[in-house]
Design a protein around this nucleic acid. Structure first.
Lengths: 171, 171
DNA sequence: TGTTTTTGTTAGGTATACCTGATTAATTTT
DNA sequence: AAAATTAATCAGGTATACCTAACAAAAACA
């Protein structure tokens, strides 16, 4: 596997990339926005953007979090007017969490940020990068699926849907 | 600029990529290692790997942090045996921070992680990705430089050196 | 030499992401 | 109907990344 050497090189460049990303986006909240998409409150927003109106319990399961943490984050999101909570009619124990219009906008805003550095690429390179990302992402889907055959982490499945429908379609 | 549309597509895939990365590396500390390379204590380690034996003040300046934060992080790193501190002989006010062997190993370990998803790429694609990352990174260097003409953030300069010498050379 | 500047420390604080334990209220099971 | 399970909440905790204010010691400057 001579390939391993090339992989190593690329790995280095990816670290470099992350580093630079981190520094370059040092300006204010833009960075935070982007970074916080995949943790805590951001994760929840993302999950809801795929599948709205979920009970807290379901969210907690999907995102691999305790219900207590979920309660906390949802409360915080509610305060920021990004989600709303209402009691389920069928089951008065459950609280349904929904995105507010505000929340939906917020997600859109965060996801539509086009990193400035993409300007550096010409059409051909953009196409290449697209294809490469497709392959990489597909590989990760596989890895995730395999690591998760037990299905106990529904989040993975969730993200699969999310991305496949919302992003992949515009190829 | 029709290109904007393609950029948008790619931006989406990059978000997808980050998301998946986040989920796929869900296993234990591997994830944390990688993520924490660019913040707080990790940043400091990285800075020292380029240029060792620095006064705390210099580190604080380069990393855009208050000296107090720096003191805190350095203390934490010392506790973890990743750096050592010694008083400068020339200037008894300054504390010189140095990587321990342990710290050096730690950085190597963290940076040499080859993401599994790179397996999915063949030689040609790996080459393409390499070139693309070069271009993107170069663009970011420019952006950083421009944003930082005042030179008040030496970190950027630092990273420039770091990456150019340590990573770029093996092209 | 006395004042000012610089490096670093101590103390205290904020915010975010999580977690465990205990408890309540609603629903299901027996 | 009583017991067990479930969804959520409250209370309290840990860890990390930062920050400001106040202050001591050393060095530079006047």
């Amino acid at each position: 596997m001579t390939n391993l050497i090339d992989q190593g090189k690329t790995a280095g460049k990816l670290v470099e990339f992350s580093m630079l990303q981190n520094i370059a986006e040092d300006d204010a909240q833009h960075k935070n926005d982007y970074k916080m998409l995949f943790q805590g409150q951001g994760k929840i927003l993302l999950a809801l953007s795929d599948d709205d109106n979920l009970p807290q319990k379901v969210l907690a399961d999907r995102l691999n979090m305790t219900p207590q943490s979920m309660a906390e984050f949802v409360r915080k999101l509610e305060k920021r007017d990004l989600v709303s909570r209402k009691k389920s009619v069928d089951d008065k124990r459950v609280t349904i969490v929904s995105l507010t219009d505000n929340g939906r906008l917020e997600i859109e805003k965060r996801m539509q940020v086009i990193p400035k550095y993409l300007r550096a690429l010409n059409d051909e390179e953009l196409l290449q990068l697209n294809n490469i990302l497709d392959k990489i992402n597909e590989q990760m889907y596989l890895d995730i699926k395999n690591a998760d055959s037990t299905l106990h982490n529904k989040y993975h499945q969730l993200m699969l849907n999310h991305v496949l429908t919302k992003i992949h379609t515009n190829d």
